[in-house]
Write a protein that binds this DNA or RNA. Structure first.
Lengths: 341, 341
DNA sequence: CTTGAGTCTGCAATCGATTGCAGTCGGATG
DNA sequence: CATCCGACTGCAATCGATTGCAGACTCAAG
C-alpha cells in the first residue's frame, strides 16, 4: 500500500536506481532530475522501506539499549538521552530491561544483537568474560563500566568523591561513613576507592559500613550500622540508598544534618523532594546516553577506529539540606557525653 | 557472516523452503526431517534474518511505544510492562520519548509508524482528530485515553476516586479539595468527574482548587490554595503533585495528616518514601503495558476483530500516613475558632 | 570527423526468507 | 495392475531497495 521506489521512479520518469541515488548520493545525479525525484517523493510521501534497504546494506538502522531496570530513575535518564540522540541520527532504539537478572542479560543480548547494528549496555551485570565474548561479534558500547578493548562512557567517580569529601571536611567532618552498593558493581568499587583516596588526602577517617542493596530498603538497613560507626557524615552508593537512610534516621529521631550529614550520588528527581533535600553528586545521565550513541555510531562508521576507551563524564556536587556542620562532640547522640574542651 | 537459511538447508540436506517450513509450520514437515533441520539450526546458531522475513511478510516484528517522558516513573512503569510482555512474543519494542512536546508527537508517530507493525501511544497529547488520523493508517493502541474506534487500556478513574472518598469520609472528612492536572488531560477530566460523583454519593462537599502542572512544582503551587478552601483533605491529580503539596504544607508548618489529609494517584516508588508516606490510589502501570501489548498483537493478528474499546484496569487504594481523622473544627488552623458543639 | 574524457542514467543481479504450485513417492483401493 | 489420495518436499517467483557495470550522451581536443 505505501509507495515504493518504483512508484516514485515512474512518477518522476526515471529508473528506480536513479531515485535511490538521488536520495542517498545526491551529487551523483543531475540537479534537474534530482528535483523531479524530490517532487515525486514529496507527492507520494515516499519513505524507503527499511527492511529492504537493510537486506542489501546489511545495516538495520537500529541500535539496542539494555538496562537492568527501566523504572530506576537513573537508567530512565540514560535511556532518555540515548533515545533523543539516536533520533537525531534517524536511528531507532530497541529498549530491553533485564529486570536486574544478570543471567538473563547474556541471552537477551545475544538475541537482540541480531536485530541491531550495535548495542549500548548500561551498567551490565554480566561477567568480564561474557562481556568480552559479546563484544567479539557485536558492536558494543558500555555505560558505567569498563572492559578491555570495549568502548564505554563512565563517570569519574574519584573526582565526584573528592568533591563530596571537600564539602564535608569544610563542614568540619573528620570521620565519614561509606555505605557501599553491590560488591560486584564496578561503580561501587570505584566510588569506594575514590572516597578512600579523597579522605586520605584530607586527613580524614573512613568508616566502612558494608555493602547493601542499591535501594531504599538497602539504605534503611544501613542506617543503624552507619550511626554505630560514630561517623558524623555518611556517603552512600546512590541517592536511593541515601533516601532510605534518611527515612530510618528520622524514624530513630536522629536529626539530619544536625546529628549526621548525608550525601548521595546520582541526583535523581526524588532527591530534591526528600526531607531534608539531599546533597548529592549529580551524574549527567542523559549526557551519558547521548555520548554512548555517538560512540556507537562512530564505531559503526569505522569499525577499525579504536575509539580508545571512550568518554569520561564528570559529576557535580549539588549541595542541599542534608549536609551541615559537624556536631560538636557533646552534641553527638551516639557517644557517651564527654567533657567539652 | 551469520548463517543463512541456505546454510542450514545444505547442512540438513534439504531445501531452504523446507527449513522455512520446519521452523514456522512444523506440522507440515516430516518429523525426521524436522529433527535434522533442528539439529542444523542448533549447530549453526541460525536465527532468521528479520529484515528478509519482513520484506516478504510485510511484518517487521517490531512495535513502537511513544511516551511523553521516560523519566516520569509512571511511564517508565508502563514501558517496563510493555517491554516484558513484548519479549514473550518475540517482538521488539522501539521506545520514543516526545519530551512532553505535543506538536512533536504527531510527526514522531508518523515516522515511527513505517518501521513497526503497530504503536502503543501512552497518554498521547495529540488532539482527537490527529489521533483518529493516525489510527486510520496505523495499528494503534491507546493507554490512558480513549478515542472513537481506537482500542485502548484505561483505568477506572471513577472507581479509584470512590475508594479514596470512602476512605476519607470514614475518617470524618466532609469537605474535600481537588487539585486537577492539565485541563486537556483525559485522566484529569475523568478523575474530576469521579471525585465529584463519589462525593455526591457520600454527601460530602467538593472544593475545586484549580488546574496545575502534573509535577512537584505544580503541587507546591496548589498547596496554599488548597488550604485556603478550608478542605480537611485534598485529593491530587497524581502523586508527584501530592508530594509537592506535602512539601509546601510542611514548609508552612501545616501538619499532615493532623491538619489536613492528602491523597495522590499512581503510587510511584517515591510515594512510600515521602514524609509522611503518601496514601494513594495505586494504578497498575506494568499491567497496563502488558495489556496494551496483548491488545495490539490481537489487532495485528486480525485487523477486523473489533477488540471493542479494550481493557479497563482498576486502582487500589494504598493507605499510608498522609491521611488521618479529620481535625475537629477548633483544631483547624485556617478557620476562625468556633464554639465547639 | 574521430576520439576520449566526463557526466548521468539504466539494467540486472543481489540481499535472505516465504509461499503458491507442482512434482515425487508410498500405500490403499477398486 | 491401474488409479488415486495424501503427505512431503522442491522450484522459482517475490518482497523493495542498492550498486557494479555498461551504455548514452555532451563537449572539447586532436
Amino acid at each position: 500500500m505505501p509507495a515504493t521506489i518504483r512508484d516514485v521512479a515512474r512518477l518522476a520518469g526515471v529508473s528506480p536506481s536513479t531515485v535511490s541515488r538521488a536520495l542517498s548520493m545526491p551529487e551523483m545525479v543531475n540537479a534537474a532530475t534530482r528535483a523531479r525525484v524530490a517532487a515525486a517523493v514529496e507527492q507520494l510521501g515516499y519513505q524507503p522501506n527499511r527492511a529492504a534497504r537493510g537486506l542489501i546494506t546489511g545495516r538495520t538502522g537500529n541500535i539496542g539499549l539494555v538496562v537492568p531496570d527501566l523504572a530506576n530513575p537513573f537508567f530512565a535518564g540514560v535511556a532518555k538521552g540515548v533515545q533523543a540522540r539516536a533520533r537525531r541520527y534517524d536511528v531507532a532504539v530497541f529498549v530491553a530491561d533485564t529486570d536486574e537478572d544478570a543471567s538473563a542479560e547474556v541471552g537477551l543480548v545475544r538475541a537482540l544483537s541480531k536485530q541491531v547494528d550495535g548495542l549500548i549496555l548500561c551498567s551490565p551485570r554480566a561477567s568480564d568474560s561474557d562481556l568480552s565474548a559479546i563484544a567479539q561479534d557485536t558492536n558494543v558500547v558500555l555505560v558505567n563500566r569498563t572492559a578491555e578493548g570495549v568502548p564505554g562512557v563512565t563517570y569519574d567517580n574519584e573526582e565526584g568523591m573528592q568533591q563530596a569529601v571537600a564539602h564535608l571536611v569544610a563542614l568540619g567532618h573528620r570521620r565519614i561513613g561509606w555505605v557501599g552498593g553491590p560488591v560486584t558493581s564496578w561503580s561501587t568499587q570505584h566510588r569506594s576507592i575514590g572516597l578512600s583516596n579523597a579522605l586520605h588526602d584530607h586527613g580524614a577517617e573512613l568508616a566502612r559500613v558494608g555493602s547493601f542493596a542499591p535501594t531504599y530498603e538497602g539504605g534503611m538497613a544501613a542506617a543503624d550500622q552507619a550511626v554505630a560507626t560514630g561517623a558524623t557524615a555518611v556517603v552512600t552508593y546512590n541517592d536511593l540508598v541515601a533516601i532510605g537512610l534518611l527515612a530510618r534516621l528520622h524514624a530513630r529521631g536522629i536529626s539530619v544534618p544536625g546529628d549526621i550529614s548525608v550525601v548521595g550520588v546520582d541526583d535523581i528527581a526524588m532527591s530534591r523532594m526528600a526531607r531534608p533535600a539531599l546533597t548529592t553528586v549529580r551524574l549527567p545521565k542523559q549526557e551519558a546516553g547521548r555520548i554512548a550513541v555517538e560512540l556507537l555510531l562512530a564505531v559503526l562508521d569505522d569499525p577499525e577506529a579504536d575509539t580508545a576507551t571512550g568518554g569520561t563524564l564528570h559529576g557535580e556536587l549539588i549541595v542541599r539540606d542534608s549536609t551541615g556542620p559537624a556536631p560538636r562532640p557533646h552534641d553527638r547522640p551516639n557517644e557517651r557525653a564527654r567533657p567539652s574542651e
